[in-house]
């Protein structure tokens, strides 16, 4: 699903990521871990094209990520950042449904005409089909989504039903991330850190992404809230069945959520495997050092 082929990244001569080959197992969760500045966030940004590689290529669903398919890649991807990355001027609900609404509005022919070139138009239509599939094709989704009247591609029914589908999806997601529905009308400034992160997760899941990227999603939360969210995340990842890439600096979190752990240091991969691999067969002394630095209460 997602693959890095010889990808490197320099910022004005400073190496952020050395040439790296990495394949993310489809439907599995990969945790990227390492000290600050090791290149883990850079790697994540490269995947959705927020930055472009200095060399090599990123493949998404077999296609090279580039200017031509950025929108498509991003809309097939859920992206969660620290503290949720919510837009302060929008309510929780509007944050969650922002992109979905936009995609459906774009499908309105009047706005399509002229606004996009032919090629872009076709590409966009492909995305919209995908989105419609995600939003409306309840059969292959979770059971709550089924029963939506508007079949995919039927242009006769307009926004009411489509927005109806959006709001159904929002409510369904509220249950998934365990957020009370009355909080959806609040602004980010009126929510707690944990609540904001749950809303951020809803936003990422809205279009039923094939890939979910999380950039230190829980770093800013207090331990109780973090623990509760970790539990929920694990359940959601399992239900979603998507390819999940999680950036964290907490080995416990990486081990708990990740099927595979990738340890990075100074822009390159040190070791890749399970926690057990790391403990039993450390490739370098650094692996031991990194594990030991993660002080555990049990050991104290």
């Amino acid at each position: 699903m997602v693959e890095l082929q010889g990808v490197s990244k320099n910022y004005d001569g400073v190496v952020a990521l050395r040439p790296t080959d990495l394949q993310f197992a489809e439907g599995k969760t990969t945790a990227l871990i390492g000290p600050s500045g090791c290149g883990k966030s850079t790697l994540l940004r490269l995947i959705i094209g927020l930055i472009s590689p200095s060399s090599g290529q990123v493949l998404f669903d077999g296609a090279q990520v580039g200017p031509g398919n950025l929108l498509e890649v991003r809309r097939k991807t859920g992206y969660v950042i620290q503290d949720g990355g919510l837009f302060p001027h929008l309510t929780a609900r509007d944050n969650v449904q922002l992109v979905a609404k936009l995609v459906l509005d774009e499908s309105h022919p009047r706005e399509m005409a002229g606004a996009l070139g032919d090629q872009a138009k076709m590409k966009n239509e492909a995305i919209q089909d995908a989105v419609r599939g995600a939003l409306l094709g309840g059969q292959q989704g979770r059971s709550q989504v089924s029963g939506i009247a508007d079949p995919v591609g039927a242009e006769s029914s307009r926004s009411l039903e489509k927005y109806g589908a959006i709001s159904t999806r929002v409510e369904e997601l509220a249950e998934v991330v365990r957020i009370p529905k009355d909080l959806l009308s609040r602004f980010p400034g009126e929510l707690s850190g944990g609540q904001r992160q749950r809303i951020g997760l809803m936003r990422a899941l809205m279009l039923k992404p094939k890939v979910l990227l999380l950039d230190e999603p829980l770093a800013a939360l207090d331990p109780m809230v973090r623990s509760a969210l970790q539990t929920d995340l694990k359940r959601i990842f399992q239900e979603l069945g998507a390819t999940v890439i999680l950036v964290t600096h907490d080995m416990g979190e990486a081990a708990y959520l990740g099927d595979t752990i990738v340890l990075l240091r100074e822009g390159q991969i040190v070791q890749q495997g399970t926690l057990e691999d790391f403990q039993q067969r450390p490739k370098e002394q650094f692996v031991d050092e990194f594990l030991n630095a993660q002080r555990s209460l049990v050991a104290l």
Binding site: L71, T77, D83
Partner: peptide, 23 residues
């Protein structure tokens, strides 16, 4: 971070400007 979020969640450049940045 919010700029990256706006781009990363798949808003077009126009939508980033008018739905997020300008407000």
């Amino acid at each position: 971070a919010l700029r990256e979020a706006a781009a990363g969640i798949g808003l077009t450049e126009q939508a980033q400007l008018w739905k997020v940045y300008m407000p």
